[in-house]
């Protein structure tokens, strides 16, 4: 199991106005599955390629178990990569595809055969070794691609949006498979995705990137409960931001003043972050009253677009509480679930 460290990783293509990746610092513990999450073009694939050696960084270093691997060419780094397209070699059958890396390492034929068959079982495609690689479904191809990347027991396993080309139902099944195999093989893995739901389901930790920079790194919960900026909160589905002022641990807004123990002491202009779920129906003295503008039925929950003091907010309540358009909801904010992010005009 390998520890991965990225130190000040920067990639600036000559002629480009901005670097694609800037000062990326990250440590992945051995055996962890980390998701690189971010919108298209934010540089996540670029970082991945620098880890694999397919791209050389302009500045910075990549360390495996505290040793720099920058000078090691990609084919010797023992970092295997699975791309968005399965890229099975068309002139080889399934078994030959999976065994490719082992053949390049000049391992013995019978050993290769055993490993290949073990891998096929792991990805639930037992007996497929002799099949032609052009006669498979998308999901099967991607599973073979996974098998091919893992059979060589890489130090680091990289996945670049491996599921985005698959149907939704297949995606969920594959996510579980990836998770299961990764845990079984205990290989340090990085998975790039632009789907935040996927990242949350798959990863031990998430590294969120915008515009080539690492924004926040932590367990999935932290992005919901403790996003660092408004933009991060928005990326994770929060649309309720109330302008306010923080003094000490109290945030004063037009919706009221809230003393939040989860905040650090500070004096600053903030947005009070109210997740749609951070409310409950209440009639008490501190409750707010808003008119329902529209609602979206989501099965187990209902999302209401409400009008509060002239602004629109979204709240989510259980389906049992069915309000109609025009109704007035009386509710209060759940203090423990609130958060504050710096106020920034630009975001």
């Amino acid at each position: 199991m390998t520890k991965l460290q990225l130190i000040n990783l920067t990639k600036h293509y000559s002629g480009a106005p901005e670097p694609s990746v800037k000062d990326f610092n990250l440590t992945v513990e051995p055996g962890e599955l980390v998701a690189f999450l971010g919108p298209s073009g934010c540089g996540k694939t670029t970082v991945l390629k620098m880890i694999s050696g397919l791209l050389l960084p302009t500045e910075g270093d990549v360390l495996f178990n505290d040793e720099s691997v920058i000078e090691i060419p990609p084919e010797k780094r023992e970092v295997s990569m699975v791309f968005q397209k399965p890229l099975l070699f068309p002139h080889m059958n399934v078994g030959e595809n999976i065994g490719f890396g082992l053949r390049m390492r000049k391992q013995k034929k019978d050993e290769i055969k055993v490993k290949v068959n073990n891998m096929l079982e792991l990805v639930r495609l037992k007996g497929y070794a002799d099949r032609k690689s052009t006669e498979l479904s998308g999901g099967q191809e991607q599973r073979i691609s996974l098998a091919r990347g893992l059979v060589i027991e890489p130090r680091i396993f990289l996945l670049d949006e491996p599921l985005s080309a698959l149907d939704a139902s297949l995606r969920i099944e594959m996510r579980e498979l990836i998770r299961k195999i990764q845990r079984h093989m205990k290989v340090t893995t990085i998975c790039v995705t632009h789907d935040q739901e996927e990242a949350v389901m798959l990863a031990d930790k998430i590294a969120l990137m915008f515009d080539g920079k690492l924004q926040q790194y932590g367990v999935p919960e932290v992005f919901y409960e403790r996003p660092k900026t408004k933009r991060i909160a928005e990326f994770f589905g929060c649309t309720n931001f109330v302008k306010g002022t923080q003094k000490g641990r109290t945030v004063a807004t037009k919706l009221g003043a809230y003393t939040l123990d989860q905040l650090d002491d500070d004096n600053r202009e903030v947005y009070l972050v109210v997740r749609p779920e951070a409310v409950e129906v209440s009639d008490g003295a501190d409750s707010l009253k808003a008119k329902v503008k529209s609602r979206i039925f989501m099965g187990t929950h209902v999302r209401y677009i409400i009008d509060l003091f002239g602004k629109e907010y979204q709240i989510t309540l259980e389906s049992a509480t069915l309000y109609k358009e025009g109704d007035i909801i009386s509710f209060r904010l759940l203090k423990e679930r609130l958060w504050a992010v710096p106020y920034d005009d630009n975001i």
Binding site: G53, L56, I72, P73
Partner: peptide, 8 residues
């Protein structure tokens, strides 16, 4: 710099 040498 083995990688750069090969590139050159």
């Amino acid at each position: 710099m083995a990688c750069i040498k090969k590139k050159n």
